[in-house]
Amino acid sequence: MTQQPHPCCVAVSAEDITVLIADDHALVRDGMRGLVIEVLGEVGVIEVGDGDALMRAARTQPPARLALVDLNMPGMERGFRLAELAHHHPGLPLVVISALTSPDVVRRTLEIPSVHAFVPKSSPTEQICAAIGAALRGEKLPFAHRAVEAQRPEVVLTPRMEEVRQLLRQGMSNKLIARTLGISEGTVKNHMSEIFKALQVSNRTQAAQLDPDTL
């Protein structure tokens, strides 16, 4: 029996529609595929697990009508390559579904014209459904800041960690930071590890670029 579209979503014809699902976890892709079929009916689905595969899949013909993209999979540089995807494929509506929900990440992502919604991975099905519908209608879905911020733990950096981070923002190496603060380079590395964990980032560039007003 043919799967009927979900009642909470926009009515579209499933014929010739392809949806691109990009996430590095197979279980997540399986869940998203099931949701897409529940929402839209028996559409075509392309699944990829990293940023490079996403860029290749976006060039397929006929083009996908919608892409559901995780920011934090390999090859996405924690979302910074999303702008590249949007630049080369401005007609591809994007819905970002991500565990990265800092205000700076959300703001930067929603500034991309072809991103129609930003949905935390912890969101209920109805919110993802609404995002899919908005993207297919060409609408921009507002982000529920308060709901996400209430779930985020408060970011706390010790005074020493903040000193290290400020020197990092000046472009200093670990060796130079150690010399400036009069501590060992190993201690600086330990502070860096704790800073990355607190800010939910994975490298020096992201730690330096993160908007300090969001801490």
Rank of each mutant, 00 (worst) to 15 (best):
L35C: 13
V105P: 09
V36E: 11
A58G: 05
V36A: 15
A57P: 04
L110H: 13
E77V: 05
V69K: 05
A99W: 01
I97Q: 09
L92Y: 11
R59S: 04
D52G: 01
F118S: 00
H88M: 02
V105N: 14
V105C: 15
V69N: 05
M73Q: 05
V36N: 12
M32S: 07
S98T: 08
I97A: 10
P103E: 13
E77I: 09
V95S: 08
R107K: 15
G34H: 13
E38Q: 15
D104S: 15
A67G: 02
I112L: 14
V39F: 07
E42Q: 11
P62I: 07
D30H: 12
R33V: 12
A117Q: 07
M73E: 03
P74C: 00
L110Q: 15
E77L: 04
F80A: 15
D70R: 04
S102I: 04
H87E: 15
L68G: 04
L85S: 01
D104T: 14
I112K: 12
P90R: 13
D70N: 05
A99P: 04
R29W: 10
E42C: 06
S122I: 00
E84G: 04
L27Y: 08
I37P: 06
A53M: 05
R56S: 03
V39W: 09
V45A: 13
M55I: 08
L40Q: 13
V28L: 02
L66F: 05
P90L: 10
A67S: 03
P120Q: 10
L100W: 01
E42S: 10
S98I: 07
S102M: 02
T101F: 06
L68K: 03
A58R: 03
V43S: 01
S122G: 14
R59C: 10
F80E: 14
P62E: 08
L94T: 03
G91S: 12
V69S: 01
A117G: 04
F80N: 11
V119Q: 09
V36Q: 13
P93F: 07
L27E: 12
L100F: 04
P103K: 13
M76I: 06
P74R: 04
M55G: 01
T109Q: 08
P120G: 08
G79C: 11
